[in-house]
Every structure is written in structure tokens, then in C-alpha cells.
Computed example of a mutant assay.
Amino acid sequence: MITKLSHAMVYVLDQESAKDFYTNKLGFELRSDITMGEEFEGSGQGFRWLTVGPPNQPEVEYILADCAMGHSPENSEAIRELVAKGAIGGGVFATDDCHKTYRELSERGVTFLAEPAERPYGIEAVFRDDSGNWFSLTQAR
């Protein structure tokens, strides 16, 4: 039986830049930053396992994954292209005060695609990470 979600993957164009964005701009905690061996990838080079998460949600980790992780070169390039042009939504982040969080994140340099607005489900703003992934920032009703 599945009991909970523990990890979610977000493909990023540059893991070091993404680490800075998620920790310094969004305020997430660094959870893991290790290099896995070739036995996991078969490439002989291994890969970087980089995870972050919101400070008040220690049971959830977002994997900031290189687009090549687990993919053929052709699929890796297709994923990179989709991420870079902003075609992939990464999910919804909850906040108690959308307007306040919008102001705080804007001051830290986060790019918003939509300012906070009333929706049937609450107040929502939409932002992009430094790779191009977009996220909803939502204050529930």
C-alpha cells in the first residue's frame, strides 16, 4: 500500500544554479547533494542527486534533476527544450498569504508570470524557476 509521496522530480537546466534558486530565493532547505556511482546510470560518470524541500515539510523532497538523468540523449534533449521554453509546470506551492509571499519572492528576484489574483479556489500567483519551470503559488480559500 502506498502511504505518502516522499519525492517529486523537477528537471532543471543547471543543478548548481537551481540549488541557489531553490535555497536562496525560495527559502528551501538543502536535503541531499551527493554524486551517485556509475552502477545507477551505467554511463560510467554517475549523476548528482540534489534534493531540497520547504523547511516546514521535512518529509517531502524535490529532486532537482539534470535532464539527462535516466534518459537517452535524444529524450534528454527533448526534456531540456521543453523546460527551457517554459512548457512544464512543476506543481502548486501553498502559502498562508499569497500577496505577502509574492512581495517577498519578488524582492529576492523571482520572476512572476502572473501577480496574485482571486480564483474560485483562493488567491493564486504564478512564477518561474531559473530553468523555466512554472509553479502556482496558492493561498487556499
Results as ranks from 00 to 15, higher is better:
residue 47 F to V: 11
residue 127 F to W: 12
residue 78 A to F: 09
residue 91 G to T: 06
residue 21 F to G: 03
residue 55 P to H: 14
residue 131 S to F: 07
residue 112 F to A: 01
residue 4 K to Y: 07
residue 62 Y to C: 05
residue 53 G to Q: 12
residue 64 L to P: 01
residue 121 Y to E: 12
residue 32 S to C: 15
residue 5 L to C: 10
residue 80 R to I: 06
residue 64 L to S: 07
residue 84 A to Q: 05
residue 37 G to N: 14
residue 9 M to N: 12
residue 25 K to A: 02
residue 25 K to R: 00
residue 11 Y to N: 14
residue 72 S to D: 14
residue 127 F to S: 11
residue 109 G to N: 02
residue 82 L to T: 09
residue 97 D to H: 10
residue 105 L to K: 10
residue 12 V to D: 01
residue 99 H to V: 08
residue 64 L to I: 00
residue 88 I to G: 10
residue 38 E to L: 13
residue 75 N to E: 13
residue 27 G to M: 00
residue 19 K to Q: 07
residue 38 E to H: 12
residue 24 N to K: 06
residue 99 H to F: 11
residue 122 G to D: 15
residue 122 G to P: 13
residue 8 A to C: 00
residue 130 D to A: 03
residue 55 P to I: 13
residue 94 A to E: 11
residue 140 A to R: 13
residue 67 C to Y: 10
residue 109 G to C: 03
residue 98 C to T: 08
residue 123 I to K: 08
residue 79 I to S: 00
residue 134 W to E: 06
residue 17 S to E: 09
residue 23 T to R: 02
residue 51 T to S: 15
residue 67 C to T: 06
residue 45 Q to E: 15
residue 38 E to A: 15
residue 10 V to I: 02
residue 4 K to V: 08
residue 70 G to F: 09
residue 111 T to V: 11
residue 49 W to F: 15
residue 101 T to K: 14
residue 94 A to F: 11
residue 26 L to M: 10
residue 126 V to E: 03
residue 36 M to F: 08
residue 31 R to Y: 07
residue 84 A to H: 04
